[in-house]
Design a protein around this nucleic acid. Sequence first.
RNA 1: GCCCUUGUAGCUCAGCUGGUAGAGCAAUUGAUUUGUAAUCAAUAGGUCCGCGGUUCGAAUCCGUGCGGGGGCACCA
Length: 638
Amino acid sequence: MPNIKLPDGKKLNFKSKVTGFQIAEKISKSLSKEALVISVDGNLKDLNYEIDKDCSIKIYTSKDKEGLETIRHDTAHILAMAVQEIFPGTQVTIGPVIENGFYYDFARKEPFTEEDLRKIEKKMLEIVDRDEPTHREVWKRDKAVEHFKKAGEIYKAEIIRDIPKEEEVSVYFHGKWHDLCRGPHLMSTGKIGKYFKLMKVSGAYWRGDSNNEMLQRIYGTSWSSQKELDEYLIRIEEAEKRDHRKLGKEMDLFHFREESPGSVFWHEKGWNLFQKLISYMRAKQDAAGYKEVNTPEILDRSLWEKSGHWEKFGANMYTSTTPDEKVFAIKPMNCPGCVQIFNQGLKSYRDLPLKMSEFGKVHRYEPSGSLHGLLRVRAFTQDDAHIFCTEDQITEECLSVTNLILEIYKDLGFENVILKYSDRPEIRVGEDKVWDKSEKALLQAIKASKLEYSINQGEGAFYGPKIEFVLRDAIGRDWQCGTLQVDLNLPERLGASFVDKDGTKKVPVMLHRALFGSLERFIGILIENYAGKLPFWLAPLQIIVIPVSSEFDEYAKEINRKIKSNGIISEVDLKNHNLNYKIRDHSLSKIPILLICGKKEVDSNTVTIRRLDSKKQENMDIDLFLKKHLALSKAPSN
RNA sequence: GCCCUUGUAGCUCAGCUGGUAGAGCAAUUGAUUUGUAAUCAAUAGGUCCGCGGUUCGAAUCCGUGCGGGGGCACCA
């Protein structure tokens, strides 16, 4: 007789076997209405799963992650069901739950269109109304394979073959329609509610392998209330409004064009922002003891062969043949060039750690389909540095890199940073002893940073372990930016050495690190994070002076001159438009501060300040204004 | 690279089933001299992404190339 333990510790006793739904009914009527799935000793099960022995359970509703995910999983099934009702002959494959929704991959010759999606949605609503009951059957493997093969579902048959021997092959029925599935599922199709929407169709490789055929994937979202669905759709719209490609055009920062896909044409304002970031970082790195260098963009093939890039990275490299038939590569990374600087002249242990930074522009031939605005380009500038040091110095150097990165992110408005740590991969170079040392050093640095971190086991580079710095933006999206890698390989390959205390030559350890990763990408992230409303010091155009009418042009020009002479980027707007027009115009182009000058201001030698997104007007003496804003207009410094 | 989709004025877009292009904003000029998110009017502005084909005739249909978008794969 099952003795059921509830999450609050209470126990319920049943005379015979009992289902989750019956337990919910026993607890309360409202719970029985809201219950979606149950966990039995930690395993998620259907509500009508029969319990016949003692166990502890928890019943989930749509308020729980488990409940919502089950709703989404069921919505995916109902999607597949609807598709097969409308388009017979379409094969189903897999349909998992993902963040905010689900997808289902189908095999069908004709592409699904936008109208098809609306048709399918309608059919899905019908299926919800039909409220088809769910039931689960466990089939013998052979029978299942046979059945799905006969039904023309070759993908399903293939999936069954790959289910581990010890697992049951379960088939879920929603009415007559059925699908191979691990479950659990809701008790009937009516339970999912009507708060779903099909979002888009796309291609997706069978089993995620680009050697396989391409299936059609339908993405959908599903929630437990209309309110949640609406909020989600609004969130998507908000994210679209922040799109850096759109804002970059509106703010006149940069553009792309056909002649050079994936390469940025930086306009004056965008380049100003770019240069500001660089000079900010120069100052930071200078203070941290880095020496800035610069290496050639084009280097002979032989160097890339020696470094291993030719073999390992060749598919992504641009090459160039000169009129005399020599082959060069346009650098996809700065490291080999930097090692060559290290190699020039004799280095002593006294020179270590030697930190060389480089704002190096690299070119990589990225697959056309992966290009995405500033976030994924073919030509970009790394805020790169290579630290040559001894094994004993690894920990300290890693820690100082981590601190530098955090400091810089904070200055740019990102306080929320997490780390991803990747340790030794299967295929690697170097002795385990050295790996032990470098992994330990990196981990120590991570722990000292007190940041949240995750471990990606075996994901390190073949030459050493690495940390990736992930920052979370204003609307909760994660962006991988900085990276820190320990390299025990390249210095040796390229013959780097230093003279140690004992007079023998030793190979230095090299740390690769980038703070933002790519300046281009980071600017994209900055724009999206701030929705284009950059902090005052980063704004490419910081102030616009607006005369109320042309009568005050001279005064406005004078104010503008004064501001500019203080090194603040300012313009005066003398166009023949009224004040309202100009305020709207410059607000839309996200100018942080507008200074209005009219009779009142001329008479009192003041300006009236209007800040972006604030209707508050603030009248101030011009010298006081400058005093208050001068420091704010420059990069933060410590 | 692969699947789907898309390419018309500086920008955002309209242009039904083929008959050599249109709006709003921006620009220019003029009027207006404006006090916190669009003053009025006039003017100018286009190899309809490139190439090839079908047709008496192509922005429109077909093929192909290039670019953009959404995904997949890739992301040292």
